[in-house]
């Protein structure tokens, strides 16, 4: 009995110290990591999606809260009108966890203009091919009014061969954005406008 207690206490202590150390470091580095990831990943992705320099776009950001999640939403404006959105969402079901992706939507035509992968932990050389232009190009011109599906389920997207899970995760993420757009489109635009005025 005494031995068991000792095992439990020692292991718990080690885990406790480890958790405390990780929390501390994460807390102190979080802002820096966020900035780096804006500079190296989100910036270039936004540049490709909107054809504008990243410096302007990175500032155009709101955090939009729904009942269960916070979404990062970037936008472009012409004059006072919001012309385009780029919404970031996690695609559940990847082989190595969620795939974080960003979809750009043109508000005039209600069509997607592109998709970018922000972060993933897929198998190198297999699932990581979701980053390839040939896969991402399929998003240009998709409508935001109906859910996206893989071609094997009667949809529009060709999955990457050998990486069905990863392809499915990206589709899931896209559908989450479509759902957000259909339910909260006007709220998002209002939030952006109120940010601009205030």
């Amino acid at each position: 009995m005494r031995e068991i207690i000792r095992l439990v206490v020692v292991l718990s202590l080690i885990c406790g110290v480890a958790a405390a150390a990780l929390t501390g470091v994460r807390y102190s580095l979080e802002k820096r990591i966020e900035r780096q990831s804006d500079f190296y990943v989100r910036g270039p992705a936004l540049e490709r999606l909107f054809n504008q320099p990243a410096v302007q776009l990175l500032g155009n950001k709101i955090n939009f809260m729904t009942s269960n999640r916070v979404y990062s939403v970037f936008y472009t404006k012409s004059g006072d009108d919001v012309t385009g959105l780029a919404i970031e969402a996690p695609g559940a079901g990847g082989y190595g966890g969620d795939i974080i992706l960003m979809v750009a939507v043109d508000l005039a035509s209600d069509q997607m203009t592109g998709m970018e992968i922000i972060q993933h932990s897929e198998t190198p050389g297999v699932g990581s091919r979701v980053e390839k232009v040939s896969f991402r190009n399929q998003w240009a011109g998709l409508s935001v009014s109906e859910p996206v599906k893989l071609r094997s389920q009667g949809g529009q997207i060709d999955a990457i061969s050998g990486a069905t899970y990863s392809s499915k995760a990206v589709v899931n993420g896209t559908n989450q954005i479509i759902e957000l757009m259909s339910g909260h489109r006007d709220e998002i635009i209002a939030a952006i406008k109120s940010k601009g005025n205030g």
């Binding site: 470091v25 580095l29 820096r32 780096q36 990831s37 500079f39 932990s121 198998t123």
Partner: peptide
């Protein structure tokens, strides 16, 4: 975490 904070491009290349 430190690599992501200070050597981001390298951490992207090494990835998983």
């Amino acid at each position: 975490m430190s690599m992501k904070a200070f050597f981001f491009p390298l951490s992207q290349q090494l990835g998983i």
